[in-house]
Amino acid sequence: MKRFLPDTFILLMIAMVILAVIFPFPAADDSPINLTRIIAIGISLVFFLHGANLEREKLVSSVKKWRVHTLIQGMTFVLFPIIGLIIFFATGELLPDILRLGFFFLAALPSTISSSVALTGVARGNVPVAVFNATLSGLIGMIITPALMGIVSTTTMGGLSIGDAIVDIALTLLAPFVLGQLMRPIIAPILAKHKWILSRFDRGVILMIVYASFASSVLGGVWTQFSIMQFFVTAIIVMILLFAAIAVSIFASRRLNLSTEDEVATVFCGSTKSLANGAPIAQILFAGSPSLGLILLPLMLYHQLQLIVCAMLAQRYAEKQSLVANPAVE
């Protein structure tokens, strides 16, 4: 029966969604609880722990895995935009122009930075590959995303501060990761003795991200700015897009005979889209637009759905890896 029942982590994610709907106020701008800062600190600690837990030889070897990197970045900045163009032109009779623009904006965004690495860690995948591609995707996206938006948008675009974005990524991700590597001789024995620390912290950060993203959407009144039919069509397209991205990433990984660890990193880096990068970019590209909420709607739905679906998939990958490592358990 346990195979058919949700585990504790999935139940906690559902609880976070319900809590965000009932009590979203901690995510408000004037809340005494600065969730954004707490999550940022949590993300940095995740990268610090991954840096301390990672053997340097594995990180160096991951840089050489050009097939994995090409597949992930190709999905993010080639396959997704092509699908986004198809959706944009195919839904002219179903959705208003703003929502169609929102779908292409979703497709043009880089991969998640924190979630993809955390999910890869939960699934016992190749964390160095995930770290490398999450960082690379964020950097490339600062240039490629606005360029891609010029294909379908006539909105006046402001200039992106690429330098600030690089500094932000470096401070949030790379600096803690490098610090963890430097402190590995001290921290690694503790993590090896208490392996639960890293997995529990990964899950905790994901739960915070789920709560904050749902709570922010509730407070922003995103759900009141469109009709039920538009929401239904948008949700269906978002689900199809996500499941198609996951299916393609799994299929391509296995066609290339990638290891299970590399497949995990490919799935979570190649199929996810970043709300953390997407929201600030949208505020610059569509500054002053009264329909910014609707433009962000596909991204909001995709982001929240990807966290739930990918968390469930990560659990399945982790169980599979555990059975391979301990066949007697089965």
Rank of each mutant, 00 (worst) to 15 (best):
G220M: 10
I113Y: 11
S322I: 04
D262A: 10
E263S: 06
P298Q: 09
A134D: 05
S61Q: 09
I295F: 04
L299Q: 12
T70C: 08
L242H: 15
S271W: 02
V152E: 11
L297D: 04
A188E: 01
Q181S: 11
V248A: 14
P24I: 05
G150L: 09
S249W: 00
W196F: 08
S115N: 04
R37E: 15
T224H: 10
V167F: 06
T272M: 08
I228H: 11
F286Y: 05
H50W: 15
S62Y: 03
C310A: 12
A52F: 09
L173I: 15
L173P: 05
F104R: 00
L71T: 04
N133R: 02
I190K: 02
K65T: 06
I72Q: 05
R56D: 08
G92H: 06
A252P: 02
I228K: 11
I209E: 01
K64D: 11
L191W: 00
S271F: 11
I82F: 05
A245S: 03
A287M: 09
R254Y: 05
R37L: 09
S274L: 03
I33E: 10
G270Q: 12
A130N: 00
F47H: 09
L241G: 13
F77S: 02
F132R: 09
L299M: 10
V309S: 00
C269Q: 12
L294Y: 10
V46I: 05
D168V: 05
P81G: 01
L301W: 03
A52R: 07
V117H: 05
L136T: 15
L94V: 15
A118D: 03
F177W: 01
P280Q: 15
G158N: 00
T172I: 07
M312R: 14
V205E: 06
D262R: 13
L136P: 14
L148D: 06
V68T: 06
V17M: 10
E263K: 03
R316P: 12
W196Y: 06
S111L: 13
T234W: 14
F286K: 00
L294F: 12
G92W: 01
L79E: 03
S271Y: 05
R100G: 03
F77Y: 07
S137M: 01
G121H: 02
V210T: 04
V131W: 01
M75D: 13
G84R: 10
I197F: 00
A287P: 07
G42P: 11
M239E: 09
V122H: 02
A235V: 07
L5W: 12
T224E: 07
M16Y: 13
R200P: 07
G102W: 08
T266L: 09
S31N: 12
F4Q: 12
P290M: 11
D262L: 06
M1T: 15
L99W: 04
Q321A: 15
R254E: 04
V233M: 15
I281D: 05
L307S: 14
G125T: 03
F25T: 15
R56T: 06
L148K: 06
T145L: 08
V78M: 14
L94H: 08
Q315C: 05
V21D: 00
P189T: 01
L173N: 01
A188G: 03
A287K: 13
A108C: 02
S291E: 14
E55S: 14
A276S: 03
T266G: 08
I237E: 03
T70Q: 07
F47W: 13
S161I: 06
L275E: 10
V178K: 04
A165S: 13
C269K: 11
A244E: 06
M183H: 06
S153H: 02
Q306F: 08
Q225G: 10
M208G: 05
S322Y: 04
